[in-house]
């Protein structure tokens, strides 16, 4: 099970599902989750997002410990689902006919290798 830094142990129950390494995995998790699941994670993570990023900023991004990498993945998942809660009230983009995200190839970001 992916471990989080002890300061964020309240998020530990969410880690197995949301500490995901790639954007594809996070997006897939978003669209395959119910709004209840998304909302539960959002409500737990958003109040701590500031503190999570501040915590991560105290470490070198070149050499993140395993639990800090997991924390960053949790933060990235929070970003991925934020629009589901803040905009659409649905897991995916509700704009009529929105193009399938799967068709858009997103080439690797520099930090994906570091993660």
């Amino acid at each position: 099970m992916p471990q989080l830094p002890k300061e964020f142990k309240s998020l530990q129950p969410f880690a197995p599902e949301w500490a995901l390494a790639t954007r594809e995995a996070r997006y897939h998790k978003r669209i395959s989750s119910s709004m209840e699941e998304i909302k539960a994670y959002y409500d737990a993570v958003l109040p701590q997002l500031d503190a999570m990023v501040e915590h991560l900023n105290r470490h070198s991004i070149k050499n993140l410990a395993a639990e800090d990498k997991n924390l960053l993945r949790m933060a990235f998942s929070a970003i991925e689902i934020s629009r589901s809660v803040e905009v659409w009230n649905a897991p995916d983009n509700v704009v009529h006919g929105a193009y399938p995200a799967e068709k858009i190839k997103v080439h690797t970001l520099p930090y994906e290798q570091a993660l």
Binding site: V53, L72, N93, V95, Y99, A101, I104, P110, Y111
Partner: peptide, 26 residues
């Protein structure tokens, strides 16, 4: 990126822009 928060901004823009251009493409 110098810090994790810059990575956050990069991830935010990538995911956000992806979802916005999906609205254009169809």
């Amino acid at each position: 990126a110098q810090t994790a928060s810059h990575w956050m901004a990069q991830e935010y823009n990538t995911a956000y822009i992806r979802d916005v251009v999906r609205e254009d493409l169809n």
